[in-house]
Write a protein that binds this DNA or RNA. Sequence first.
DNA 1: TAATTATTGTGAGTAAGTTCACAATTGAAT
DNA 2: ATTCAATTGTGAACTTACTCACAATAATTA
Lengths: 209, 209
Amino acid sequence: MKDKRKIPKPVIKRMGLYYRCLNKLYEEGIEYVASKDIAARLGIKSSQVRKDLSYFGEFGKRGVGYNVDQLMKKLEDIIGVNKIWNVIVIGAGNIGTAIVNYPGLKKEKFNIIGVFDADRSKVGKKLGKLSVTHFSELEKFFNKNIVDLVVLAVPENAAQMVVEELEKYNIKGIINFAPIKLRTKIPVEDVDITLSFKSLVFRIEREIK
Amino acid sequence: MKDKRKIPKPVIKRMGLYYRCLNKLYEEGIEYVASKDIAARLGIKSSQVRKDLSYFGEFGKRGVGYNVDQLMKKLEDIIGVNKIWNVIVIGAGNIGTAIVNYPGLKKEKFNIIGVFDADRSKVGKKLGKLSVTHFSELEKFFNKNIVDLVVLAVPENAAQMVVEELEKYNIKGIINFAPIKLRTKIPVEDVDITLSFKSLVFRIEREIK
DNA sequence: TAATTATTGTGAGTAAGTTCACAATTGAAT
DNA sequence: ATTCAATTGTGAACTTACTCACAATAATTA
């Protein structure tokens, strides 16, 4: 591993993919795997797999491949899945509800500990084990709980205002479902599902690969 | 516009962003806009905006900017928002339900015309105006309806089997929420929300920008 | 009319990301 | 022990994407 190199952003997304792939291999009882096989399962090139992993260390054995169990554990450290992240969801509409109910997040150690909404008619509504709290209770909640991440699932016109409120607290990042660019110093990851639809449609219409 | 150039994939995603931005400008009553202003709203460089647009034509006026209304209409043609897309959702779990109820899609001309699930206990459940149909009715449905896109919101272990079923029909694309690589000739757009969480967490932990 | 200011469109230059290609290593077979 | 086949890790080449910088153009002002 040549150190100090900056890790390309796409590598980061692929690490999660590799981790999931290794999990499956482990469940299938496979002990050693070659970059070629991982690549085939993910539909990418084997050289990509090797280079990506090489940013973090030398995990393989030449002529043999990677020990599934061992590499899995390395990836756990790298992508930090072992740490439990406390998450609150702001906005209890369709997206907020789906996030709270989505079992995949819990499985990956994202622990949802609160749901907030500004709409009084939604307050008290049960979502799994949680019930919706009014947005005005946010400060009280932050005083009593450690919150790492906030899922922002509010309407577009409310998003920037909520972010400004969030800046008062000490959160580590925001997953933003509102289709606007948030102005903030807090790290933000934007998620936009309609863009995925549009992107697909564009490819279909233009036959661009 | 220099023609025949292949359009970079990231440009395609940004076109949707530009369109949405233009809509807002239009609503705000702004008649002309400079690439610099669009860029500022989206948090990117103005040269990027101009170059992206230049793949499709020359829409601006030097020294003045772009006519909002006019550019909006051009973008409509380019990204094909004017066409209505018929969509079915397979899988009526959390994600499937959220997709069906998500008003953003309807607004963008993605028209959900059916929801299917293999779980008999879900069949008949009302989701907005639609009710869940059993997966075995799929063929009958395809015989009576034109379906452009399929949203795949089934568990990971069912996804590949569903895709093989879908290959019998003449659909144009798949939005895949299952965390696996689908083996198919049909154009697929993968959506993975847990990857967004992981990517954010990775950035937070490593301070990589 | 000439100067001034604003802004586009794009070729050329950078930067980022991917793939190639091969020496180095490992284990198995002869 | 030697050969053979498999596979890694990585520098170098290549490809893709982004940014710069400036000529060209348009509107405004003097």
